[in-house]
């Protein structure tokens, strides 16, 4: 890991977007320590910048660190996680995300079944969620706001729903409640960690639609973490591709999917089965697996699985550099 640090460009390439950012992540690295004291590097040198009203997609497979990134931005890292370095910057100021939870930051989780408290009513939870943001409002006012927001996210009969317990609602409804909760806070950053993964297809479509519509209500930025390339391509403005804890590519959505530069991004897109493709050809996969996160290779993290890997790829980690209009890629041999 240390060699990859040294080889990095000290001044990360800045895009236009970064200069007018609402919220930024600067040079963030996170490790996990297991019970034997071994360190696993989960995120390395992450730079991100999000614009107001924009949805930034974060894609990657298991072990890519995408959920850790989401949690780090919320100050919700687990106890065994160590933030090695890096800052979260809100409107130009370095901030502690823990102090901003429920005020400038809000989150929607993957599993709507367990994300709501099982023995408290929806109303109580929605009121409590607004307390940090609106400490001087009366409970009655907060409850009224909650009911109005439920209507906005497509829940009929909101007054009745407020006195429901989570188990009385369907999975899709609970996720609507979670989104309503996030929007009530009027956050600068809404973090959504795989918010549709646990839902059925037709419900997923409803929730994706809701995120799209939420831009009308939400002035802040959205970080949308997902393993579904299709969903990200339909919903997001900008996309970050993570592999083994590092950003391998970052670009505007159309650019990323039309002209991917990194071999991993290209391979990932090729792996995605398409419904109109019924050829008998074998399906594409990426041979090999993730590198050992406790002792990362000296060079590019993807080198061992990359068809284009050369000598330099195995020795020196490629920096994230400009690879087109508002497009960055970390590859010695961009395609």
């Amino acid at each position: 890991m240390s060699s990859s640090l040294k080889s990095r460009d000290p001044e990360p390439a800045k895009t236009d977007a970064q200069r007018s950012a609402l919220i930024e992540v600067r040079d963030l690295s996170v490790s996990f320590v297991d019970k034997h004291g071994e360190r696993f590097s989960v995120l390395r040198n992450i730079d991100l910048s999000l614009q107001p009203k924009a949805i930034m997609g974060v894609v990657g497979e298991s072990g890519s660190g995408k959920s850790t990134l989401a949690n780090a931005m919320m100050g919700l890292l687990p106890k065994n996680a160590v933030k090695e370095k890096g800052d979260i910057i809100l409107k130009g100021k370095v901030v502690d995300p823990i102090a901003l939870r429920g005020r400038a930051l809000a989150m929607v989780f993957q599993d709507p079944m367990n994300a709501l408290h099982p023995v408290m009513t929806i109303g109580t939870q929605m009121v409590d969620a607004q307390r940090a943001r609106f400490p001087n409002h009366l409970i009655r006012e907060l409850r009224k706001r909650a009911a109005e927001m439920l209507t906005k996210v497509g829940i009929a009969d909101p007054e009745k729903r407020l006195s429901c317990y989570p188990h009385e609602l369907s999975g899709g409804m609970r996720q609507r409640v979670m989104i309503a909760m996030a929007l009530l806070v009027e956050p600068d950053l809404l973090v959504a960690d795989e918010p549709t993964t646990a839902l059925d297809a037709t419900i997923e479509a409803q929730i994706a639609e809701l995120f799209r519509a939420s831009r009308d209500t939400l002035d802040g930025a959205t970080l949308f973490v997902s393993h579904s390339l299709g969903l990200v391509s339909e919903l997001c403005d900008e996309v970050v591709v993570l592999y083994a804890g590092a950003i391998v590519e970052r670009a505007d959505v159309a650019e990323l999917f039309n002209a991917p530069r990194h071999p991993y991004t290209r391979a990932l897109i090729a792996c995605e089965p398409r419904s109109d493709d019924q050829s008998d050809e074998a399906m594409v996969s990426i041979p090999g697996g993730l590198p050992d996160l406790s002792s990362l290779p000296a060079g590019c993290v993807f080198a061992s699985r990359c068809l284009h890997a050369s000598q330099i790829c195995r020795q020196i980690a490629p920096p994230l550099v400009t690879a087109g209009q508002n497009h960055l890629a970390a590859c010695w041999h961009p395609q």
Partner: peptide, 9 residues
Amino acid sequence: YIRTARAYG
């Protein structure tokens, strides 16, 4: 759900 409560400050 405890994480949710923490996420809302």
